[in-house]
Computed example of a mutant assay.
Amino acid sequence: MSRRYGGNPAATVILIVADIAALILILWIAFYLFKANPANNLVDWVHDSANWLAGWSRDLFTVDSANWRTVLNFGLPAVVYLLIGHAVAGRVNHS
């Protein structure tokens, strides 16, 4: 992964953090849509983490469908974390 940013370790760390944040949010969307068992420890941890990561966008969209509401309210922060994280990592790499 560090090759992707020319070997700059700071850029690599930023990229990994952004990717992990987005992955957690996307996992929660998948768990919700496929009705994963909420009593499972992994599902519970992903849900809690996703709620924390998406705290700023919670209830931003109030569509009637619970599935679409989850996709929008957790998908937007995933995209934002990816865009900002990759932009910052690219900037750090080029400075």
Rank of each mutant, 00 (worst) to 15 (best):
F31P: 01
N40R: 09
A50H: 00
L33C: 13
A22N: 02
V13R: 05
V88H: 02
N73L: 06
A87C: 07
N51V: 07
L42D: 03
R4C: 04
D64R: 08
V71L: 03
V88T: 02
Y5F: 15
L25Y: 10
R3D: 14
N8Q: 11
A30M: 13
H86F: 06
A54E: 08
L60P: 00
I24A: 14
W56C: 10
F31W: 09
L15P: 02
G75L: 12
W56Q: 10
N67K: 06
S57K: 05
G7C: 14
N40T: 10
L82W: 07
L53I: 12
I16K: 05
T62W: 02
K35I: 00
I26V: 15
D48R: 12
G6S: 09
A21W: 04
G55E: 11
L33D: 14
I84R: 01
L83T: 11
G6N: 13
V80Q: 12
V79S: 07
A78F: 03
P77I: 15
P38F: 13
R58T: 14
P9K: 08
Y5K: 08
D59S: 12
R91D: 10
L60W: 15
L15D: 11
A36S: 10
A78D: 08
T70V: 15
L23M: 14
Y5M: 06
L33V: 06
V13N: 02
I16G: 05
N41Q: 09
A22I: 01
A36L: 10
L42K: 04
P9N: 02
L83C: 11
L53Q: 10
R4F: 13
L60V: 11
D19Y: 00
N41F: 10
G75M: 12
